[in-house]
Nucleic acid binder design. Sequence first.
DNA 1: TGAGGTACTTAGGATTCCAATG
DNA 2: CATTGGAATCCTAAGTACCTCA
Length: 573
Amino acid sequence: MTELISLPKKRKGESTNWWEEDEQDDFSIQKWKSLEHHGVIFPPDYIPHNIPLFYDDEAISLTSEQEEVATWWSSVIGTEWETKEIFRKNFEQNFLKLFGSDHQIKSLDKCDFKKIAEYVEVQREVKKARPPEEKKQERESKQKLDEEIGYGIVDGKREKISNIIVEPPGLFRGRGQHPKAGYIKTRLRPEDITINVGKSNLVPKCPVPGHAWKNVVHNNYVTWLAYYKDPVLSFSNVKYVYLAASSKFKGLNDKLKYEKARKLKGLIDGIRHDYFDKIKKDNQVNKQLGTALYLIDKLALRVGNEKTEDEADTVGCCSLKVSNISFKENCQITLDFLGKDSMRYFNTVPVDPNVHENLRKFVEGKGPDEELFDLITTSSLNEYLKTFMKSLSAKVFRTYNASVTLQMLLGKFNHKNMQVEEKVQFYTDANREVAILCNHQKSTPKNFEVQMEKMQDKLKDKFESLNLLETHLKGFLSKKIAQNADKKFPTSEENTRKAIVRAKTSIKNMEIKLKMKDDNKTVALGTSKINYMDPRITVAWCKNNEVPIEKVFPKALRSKFIWAMYTEPSWEF
DNA sequence: TGAGGTACTTAGGATTCCAATG
DNA sequence: CATTGGAATCCTAAGTACCTCA
């Protein structure tokens, strides 16, 4: 077997890699012994441009704070945010508050941001048009800064930090119908930040002169380096600063996640047996538990925690409403609801007859806004799962089903002689099936249609030149001089044959590309690759089939999954 | 048992990068 | 050499899960 992945050399008797160590178990209790880092840094202060806002054709000069917020709005103009009702309404309220009730500015509709918007546009152009050396220098100084403070030291090992710059101020872009979309996200100061470092390690210096961190703690039961209250959702949300995906903290948890899913694989037959039991003959609560778990297992639904009034109204399995389900003939149901990120789940599937009957009963006598599963909660469902395995919870089913599906699909591969590109396409097809199972979507790229047409045209051209080549070849065969004997056509029969082969592969590749593009129009492949499919399945498959790993895992994924790179070709999920 | 808090994973869109193309 | 479009990465919102406390 060729070694297709370049790996750090292992030294005899010395193991510096966490995934080769034995002490992974106590990670669940104590995460580290020493932790050292440079804290967080803050986005640059706002620099005013002193361009006025016009109100009833009158120039209004703004304070720096008002101007900054007005400038945010200016860059929203022309995007769909500008006309999004909640966003606009919330912004107006927030914005007017900055002026006070006796100020003449009383309505967003009458505000004219044109001059500021022009300025924003010009600045954008200026930034884009910077000379390349300047851009390069900027990039380099950014890298240097990152090199200096973008790393922490955990138990003596240098680790990348994922987010050292705290979130800049701006307008809150909540997704879907988020009740707080358009709120002002205020600027964070050192006084908002709690720092976590080792007791005997240096406390990071506050980067803003004359200011100080809110607090410094030494909590080694957690993996975060710092946290702050979210400026918009401060009542509930906390933002953490963590190490990057390549770190031991993240990698080890990731590995444990997949190991848990593999354990579920060993139990799944018993679990399915048990929930079918519950579906059939138990009391109402158990009927709901069994039926909900059936949907989670079969359709890879999220568990669906309750949400508060201050969030977009989305659902998962346990929070499904009567209006989200409809019943079709042949034991089919249609689920239609907005899930995480307000992405629509819309699917018609046949279900087990008992499930179908249960669901019909759950709906009986309820209004459209009432809960389908009114007798259970996500906690009670997870409690039920704990009876099978102490660390089992609903989300493990998504991981398990995604990984099992990938393993099964890749297991069908038996085309070792394929071109690498075709092998990659096979992999992508499997990836897509998983993504569809998990309902990972993306919006159709802008001017997708135009680009498809362009590619179609190109393909047509390629067919035409293939035709010409074949005619040219016939010329040789009938011993006539080909009429295209000039310029761009090959001068020998052999070369013509070669050119034909080249043209054919080129057409084939183009067709593959075209099909992939269309198939992937609305399917997001990345999410399942990053979060759901055990990377060892992919690594083993690549090794077995001589596909270089970088064809399927870009750099960031190779370092995230460094622990999986040593997987043996014979490994199975 | 339910609400709120905490810590972590998962998610799509925006932005940036980079290589192919004219 | 500039443009452009797809891939890769960045950003931060939005989930899950579990704990504590009344």
